[in-house]
């Protein structure tokens, strides 16, 4: 999984320059640039938290993208070593996402968390999608065609929206590398004042061998149309990157019915 590409995407979307973000989290811009390009190791959990704070996204999201254990988990395990046995139990049962969500529901009911202690839940992707906004097993000549297809799907869901404008917004992603988050997933996004947030999903029958950050060919494109820039959009972006790191592309490959995609997605993001 490629954390750097996600960080770059989040940073540019938040309107921060490399220098700005580096200064705010107290590292050199050269280091941050190396992290974004994947030349340097992913930042420590503490640094990731600082970045998440500056970008105003839940730090647990970035930890997930980086496959890092949150420092609070490590601290808790040190404090209550017995908890490790419970994690082991879960691991042995090989619980799926939906089952884990049930476990968490139980925890929520039994041991409610004090208000404000937990990050606000991340809104899921599935409700933004609809069968008519999924194009499955697309094969096409290049990235431009993918953008055209998703733009048309996004625009047709917005009454009175101009396809050209949506395409124009998406075409900021001139190359797939500019919005790829690794794991074979790219997340182009566009803005249209007054639009209801919607997403379109494309799976590629023939992977696009572009210049992706982790070198994996592009197989899934999730495009999001938003009314305006803002924090919810950043959080969604980070969530998409997390889904990518959880193997979104592998799961959706070979599915040919939108309903299958939706249910697969719901399972994947049951735990947010």
């Amino acid at each position: 999984m490629h954390l750097g590409a996600t960080l770059r995407l989040l940073r540019t979307d938040a309107g921060l320059s490399l220098r700005d973000l580096a200064r705010r989290i107290g590292v050199s811009s050269a280091y941050l640039s190396r992290v974004e390009n994947g030349v340097d190791a992913p930042p420590t959990p503490e640094r990731l938290s600082a970045i998440a704070r500056e970008l105003r996204v839940p730090s647990s999201l970035l930890m997930d993208v980086a496959n890092r254990m949150s420092p609070s988990v490590a601290a808790y395990l040190e404090e209550v070593p017995g908890a490790g046995a419970l994690f082991l139990d879960i691991a042995q049962r090989r619980l799926s996402g939906l089952q884990l969500a049930r476990v968490r529901d139980f925890l929520d009911a039994e041991f409610p968390v004090a208000q404000g202690r937990r990050d606000a839940p991340v809104p899921p992707l599935a409700p933004l999608l609809a069968p008519e906004r999924m194009v499955l097993q697309l094969s096409c000549a290049g990235w431009d065609d993918v953008l055209d297809v998703v733009a048309e799907r996004l625009a047709s869901s917005q009454p009175g929206a101009d396809v050209a404008r949506v395409v124009g917004g998406l075409k900021r992603h001139r190359e797939e590398s500019s919005c790829a988050v690794g794991g074979g997933v790219a997340v182009p996004h566009s803005f249209l004042p007054g639009a209801v947030p919607t997403a379109a999903l494309v799976t590629l029958a023939t992977p696009l061998a572009g210049d992706t950050p982790d070198g994996k060919p592009l197989r899934v494109v999730v495009a999001v149309l938003d009314a305006e820039r803002g924090n919810p959009q950043l959080v969604r972006l980070a969530h998409l990157a997390r889904l990518a790191s959880r193997g979104l592309a592998d799961r959706l490959l070979g599915l040919s019915q939108p309903a299958q995609v939706l249910s697969s997605l719901e399972e994947l993001e049951a735990l947010r």
Partner: peptide
């Protein structure tokens, strides 16, 4: 020619959509 191919349960609708987009 730019080729394009995907899975579709409603071919007529998808043809019209694509025509509009292009």
């Amino acid at each position: 020619v730019r080729p394009l191919s995907f899975v579709s349960a409603e071919p007529a609708q998808d043809i019209c959509r694509t025509a509009k987009a292009r």
